[in-house]
């Protein structure tokens, strides 16, 4: 049994302008020690997915359906108190902006100890020791001294390490990282990615990595979920997706990256802007921006997820274009791209 199995997750928000379906039928599963990447641009629903799993969306205005099975237990059926016990203990989360994610008025030690004592019935001394050990484990020098300092005395990279230490304090089975390196400089990003890579083996937890950067995906993920407008565009193993991308949005994302377009005068950009979830386009949500759009794409129902025929592993995509054209187009586009290294 998979550690985490998400089946047909659907989250709807009630807003002044009516119901908004922020994510619409997302399914995936994740084994222990695996890293799943969720890639997408703003409004793709990638962050809502993680908050839905954590049960952190406001209960009044957000409705989530489907199943989120953690070790076979459906989290969506749990009450707030049961869910609270799971948050921070079985599933932990780190966020994009380490500068604002720690409470400015408490010491780092206080916040780490709080994380420990919320879930473990241990003494203050034991919790302090655990906090200290966690700081050391994420590579923070002088952990004893650092425990007594406030977040503003830490740099961005160090704060993200504190967030990771706090997330791992209770040995969670699953770590959700929501754009953990986006706000960091590239050398700090490399440090944090290195740390996550190491922790994945040391702590043996599964990781959901939410990012907009295909580079980060290629560096540390095993599986990828490409999301667009709240739906899955393409999903599969990282090697399969990069070697045989089958959805025009994935192509566009790859073509938009300067690092994959070495020597080209122009990038293969995607026209238009990411869709507003308030008024998503009918049919395939990528259709208004898709260069391969056909009449069928604009009408309901949206294209279903289909297995990519020439891939032996699990690799699905949702596009009406016929398989042969997609094969040819992907091959043509990839041949044109030269990757900077």
């Amino acid at each position: 049994m998979a550690l985490l199995e998400v089946r047909d997750l659907r989250t709807t928000f009630r807003t002044d302008d009516g119901l908004v379906t922020a994510i619409d039928g997302v399914s995936f599963s994740l084994e222990k020690g695996q890293v799943l990447g969720i890639v997408g641009e703003s409004g793709s629903g990638k962050s809502v997915t993680s908050l839905s799993i954590m049960g952190l969306l406001p209960r009044g205005s957000a409705a989530t359906s489907g199943q989120v099975l953690l070790d076979g237990r459906d989290l969506l059926t749990l009450g707030e108190e049961e869910m609270r016990k799971i948050r921070g203990q079985e599933i932990a989360m780190i966020f994009q902006d380490p500068m604002t994610s720690l409470n400015p008025v408490y010491t780092v030690g206080w916040q780490l100890i709080e994380a420990v004592r919320l879930h473990q019935d241990v003494s203050q001394t034991a919790a302090t020791k655990r906090a200290r050990d966690m700081l050391a484990a994420v590579g923070i020098p002088n952990p004893d001294e650092r425990l007594r300092q406030y977040p503003h005395e830490f740099s961005g990279g160090m704060r993200q390490r504190v967030m990771i230490a706090m997330a791992l304090a209770n040995d969670p089975k699953l770590l959700i990282a929501d754009e953990p390196t986006t706000a960091l400089d590239v050398t700090t990003q490399a440090q944090i990615l290195e740390l996550i890579r190491r922790l994945r083996t040391d702590f043996d937890s599964a990781i959901v990595m939410i990012t907009h950067d295909l580079g980060v995906v290629a560096e540390i993920c095993d599986d990828v979920l490409v999301m667009y407008g709240g739906r899955v565009a393409e999903q599969g193993g990282v090697d399969d997706i990069f070697a045989r991308p089958r959805h025009p949005y994935t192509w566009g994302l790859m073509g938009s990256m300067p690092s994959r377009s070495h020597g080209m005068d122009r990038l293969q950009s995607i026209p238009g802007s990411p869709p507003s979830l308030l008024r998503p386009p009918p049919g395939c949500r990528f259709s208004p921006r898709c260069p391969y759009v056909m009449d069928i794409c604009r009408g309901d129902p949206p294209p279903p997820l289909r297995q990519v025929e020439d891939d032996p592993h699990f690799h699905v995509e949702a596009c009406h274009l016929d398989a042969a054209s997609k094969r040819e187009e992907a091959a043509r586009l990839l041949a044109a791209q030269e990757i900077v290294r």
Partner: peptide, 27 residues
């Protein structure tokens, strides 16, 4: 050189074979 080696490579095969320089500490 460290900056260049720190940039994630958007290709899993190349990423696995890459030598990285991970700088320590902050600016």
């Amino acid at each position: 050189a460290s900056l260049l080696s720190a940039v994630p490579v958007p290709d899993p095969v190349l990423a696995r074979s890459k030598q990285r320089i991970v700088l320590q500490g902050d600016v």
